[in-house]
């Protein structure tokens, strides 16, 4: 018999508010909590082999063993996007040092949940692919499988706004101030103003023959924006766009991949990952600053934090999670 663990795919990760714990959710509906402090300390001592020896990580089971598509960390709650459902779980029920002693998989105790109903006469189940929480006004943005970006008021759970316009499911969304950007399977990137219903602008990277990759399709797997820039990629090549000009500034030919699923833009550095052997660190020009070999076949999730310690975690279609304290090399691997 094949161990099902071998085929684990981790679609999302997040840190606990205190920053000491890493929470991952996989396709079997299992939520795993790692105590980063312990993991990193043992990593510093270069005792990689002794990792995850009992009591370091523990697991919870999502209702109906639902695939965990996305997660976001709120002040009081861990927000989990499943299939047709967003649930909130009180941090207190997840974070506790004593949980690690119990090897049993406990069911998640859910504090609240929001149902996203399927459209009428449809067998579609709506994956909640991407979640972003605006902590100031407690609004949750969710990019979903029904081609819509929802904005939920977490005070009452109501839908504040539905951003409709894409013709296929949403892969990824990003938010900067009042601007929401969404990347979809249909090959387009749309910019929305939170205050209006319609999109303000639309970019189709695959219409540019330089960016298009016919073998991989036109889909956009991930998008990130800053004030001036928009970084996106997917079936198309990774490309950096000037927002004001709505034109590609750099097309990254140096990245060897068959599909981008993760993009990040921080401190004048670009990060990209996906179906590739490496996770890339790039300059604004088509130049590789650094590349890290990754354990997952495809990287679906990259989370990073500065405090209480600087760490970046890469996860995807593998049971292994790569941990870097410095993005120049892989420090340790979790989940073995």
């Amino acid at each position: 018999m094949v161990d099902i663990k071998y085929y684990t795919t981790i679609l999302s990760q997040t840190f606990s508010p205190c920053g000491n714990y890493l929470i991952t959710g996989n396709n079997y509906g299992i939520l795993t909590v790692y105590n980063l402090k312990n993991e990193l300390q043992s990593g510093n001592d270069f005792k990689d082999q002794n990792l995850s020896v009992g009591g370091r990580s523990y697991e919870f089971e999502m209702i109906r063993k639902m695939q965990i598509n996305s997660m976001e960390s709120g002040e009081k709650f861990l927000i989990i996007g499943g299939v047709g459902l967003i649930v909130g779980v009180d941090w207190d029920t997840i974070i506790d040092n004593n949980f690690g002693e119990n090897s049993k998989v406990e069911p998640l105790s859910i504090s609240w949940s929001i149902n996203i109903p399927s459209p009428k006469d449809s067998m579609l189940t709506i994956d909640v692919n991407c979640l972003i929480l605006n902590k100031e006004d407690n609004v949750l943005y969710a990019g979903c499988g029904d081609n819509t970006v929802y904005a939920f008021n977490l005070e009452c759970g109501d839908v504040m706004q539905k951003l409709e316009g894409h013709s296929d499911f949403i892969h990824s969304i990003d938010k900067l101030d009042d601007t929401i950007v969404s990347a979809s399977e249909d090959g387009s990137v749309m910019f929305w103003d939170v205050r209006s219903k319609d999109y303000s602008s639309k970019i189709i990277p695959s219409s540019n023959p330089e960016i298009k990759r016919p073998n991989l399709g036109n889909w956009i797997g991930s998008v990130t924006i800053t004030k001036d820039w928009m970084l996106c990629g997917g079936g198309t090549k990774l490309s950096l766009w000037n927002r004001s000009m709505a034109a590609p500034m750099t097309v990254y030919n140096c990245v060897e991949d068959s599909g981008i699923h993760v993009t990040k833009l921080m401190d004048e550095t670009l990060y990209a990952g996906g179906c590739s052997k490496y996770f890339y660190q790039l300059s604004f020009t088509d130049e590789i600053l650094c590349k890290i070999e990754t354990s997952p076949v495809t990287v679906f999730s990259c989370v990073n934090q500065e405090n209480p310690f600087k760490v970046t975690c890469l996860a995807g279609s593998s049971y292994k999670i790569d941990i870097c304290t410095n993005l120049n090399y892989k420090m340790t691997t979790l989940g073995i």
Partner: peptide, 28 residues
């Protein structure tokens, strides 16, 4: 096949479901 590809992992509809009009392939 109802939907070609679903989800961030771009899953294929492998699950065969018996329907009155035949077999439909769905996502897991």
């Amino acid at each position: 096949i109802l939907y070609n590809i679903r989800g961030r992992a771009r899953n294929h509809p492998f699950k065969a479901v018996k329907h009155h009009s035949g077999i439909i392939f769905e996502h897991r």
